[in-house]
């Protein structure tokens, strides 16, 4: 018996079973996502759970974002130095920070160890550094805000 000759009722039941199984799997996936991700994020925004932990989990550049947005609001970007090795294609770090700052780009980008050493030596000339690595700056002069993948140093 070919498929086209089978009773329509059987085909209907077969399709219904397939649809129910697939929809059931998806309902479970959706439920898991709700409990695991959506609900904690919503609760954190409502102040019921700490937000920073959840945001950092999803967005390693959160510290950079909040820092830059504060600076942008108060127009304090003039003395900012971005420390990162800019290659082709540009590194994720560079682009993330560039995007956040864009199109306001009054920043100095340090490339290479010599340039970096010069910057660190004359660190007091700058207001802030954002770096993808740890910088040896005087802790009495600069506060460190450590993000997951970025380090932000702000003049005290």
């Amino acid at each position: 018996m070919t498929l086209s000759q089978q009773p329509e009722q059987t085909q209907r039941h077969l399709l219904a079973v397939i649809v129910v199984i697939i929809a059931g799997v998806h309902a479970l996936l959706f439920g898991y996502w709700m409990v695991r991700t959506a609900l904690p994020l919503t609760l954190s925004q409502a102040g019921i759970k700490p937000a920073q932990e959840i945001f950092d989990q999803h967005d390693p550049y959160q510290a950079v974002r909040s820092f830059l947005s504060q600076r942008k609001k108060s127009n304090q970007l003039a003395g900012l130095v971005l420390v990162g090795e800019r290659v082709s294609p540009p590194s994720r770090f560079d682009l993330e920070v560039y995007y956040e700052l864009y199109p306001v780009l009054p920043i100095k980008v340090a490339r290479g160890s010599n340039e970096l050493a010069g910057l660190v030596k004359n660190a007091q000339r700058h207001d802030a550094f954002i770096s993808d690595s740890v910088l040896e700056l005087d802790p009495t002069e600069f506060d460190l805000i450590a993000g997951q993948d970025a380090h932000i140093y702000i003049k005290r």
Partner: peptide, 19 residues
């Protein structure tokens, strides 16, 4: 509704979306 709420709260992380 929860997908919309989540998306509004979730940070923009997708590379292509940004760049």
């Amino acid at each position: 509704a929860p997908i919309a709420i989540f998306s509004i709260l979730y940070p923009l992380t997708a590379w292509d979306a940004k760049m």
